[in-house]
């Protein structure tokens, strides 16, 4: 079966522009969700390590639940039930219901899922920092926040980067799941394009190539970041 590449052209008879638009939406989702996940992860990791018993138990429940339930179920649950809950809450305090944009809801969903995983990654990385370094920061009279910014975060980064780069790959792939709730990212527009032109293989392979390009490009960037984060570390053989 010959592949007709004209349907991948950028201008409207072809679907290339639509696919690139979908890729852009996917990347927006992935970046937003990943950053939100990192913020949750840093907070969660510190809460798990230094928080009180109740906070620790709550965070344990959060990470266990999120990591044991399929992302697809979580996305359906958070996307539909989450937007519903926000509107119920707004109604309760007497505000009119708002129409939550798909992008915001999607970023929220991916961020919550990523947060659980990055909590665990960052917790392991913080524990790998020799406690003497953190004690030294405290001995210098740094406030906890300053010690976090100057000592703990930079020192744990080399240990966290392999896990965090895995999470970035997972975030880019998880964006495809939002196709199921009708957010028009790469997987959904591919499906639409494939459905309306009936050339399924061409479009799925094209989308696969785009996802693969994102992965390969991220690998290059991550190796730069890793080299930068490891600049003070002794070279491992």
């Amino acid at each position: 079966m010959p592949f007709n590449l004209d349907i991948l052209a950028l201008s409207p008879p072809g679907w290339g522009g639509v696919l690139l638009g979908g890729l852009l939406a996917s990347l927006e989702l992935a970046v937003g969700g990943y950053l939100l996940g990192l913020v949750i992860g840093v907070g969660g990791a510190f809460g798990k390590l230094y928080g009180g018993p109740i906070l620790r138990d709550l965070l344990e429940i959060y990470t266990t639940l999120i990591r044991a339930v399929p992302e697809l179920v979580l996305i359906l649950l958070l996307y539909y039930a989450g937007t519903d809950a926000v509107n119920q809450l707004l109604l309760l305090i007497g505000l009119p219901a708002v129409d939550i944009s798909g992008l915001a809801a999607g970023i929220f969903v991916i961020g919550v899922v990523q947060g659980a995983y990055s909590t665990e990654v960052l917790r392991g990385a913080i524990q790998a920092v020799p406690p003497g370094q953190i004690e030294a920061a405290r001995a210098y009279g740094m406030s906890p926040f300053l010690a976090l910014r100057r000592v703990t975060l930079p020192a744990m980064l080399p240990y966290a980067i392999p896990g965090l780069s895995n999470l970035w790959m997972i975030a880019t792939k998880d964006t495809a799941l939002l196709a199921v709730v009708g957010f028009s990212e790469l997987a959904l527009v591919t499906r639409q394009a494939a459905g309306s032109t009936k050339s399924y293989m061409t479009f799925y392979l094209a989308a696969g190539a785009l996802y693969l390009l994102v992965t390969l490009f991220s690998n290059v960037v991550i190796s730069f970041i890793e080299r930068h984060a490891r600049r003070g570390m002794p070279r491992t053989v």
Partner: peptide, 12 residues
């Protein structure tokens, strides 16, 4: 196959 989303692999 580690780079493609599982959903896309399934479709393919």
């Amino acid at each position: 196959f580690r780079g493609l989303p599982e959903l896309l692999t399934l479709f393919i």
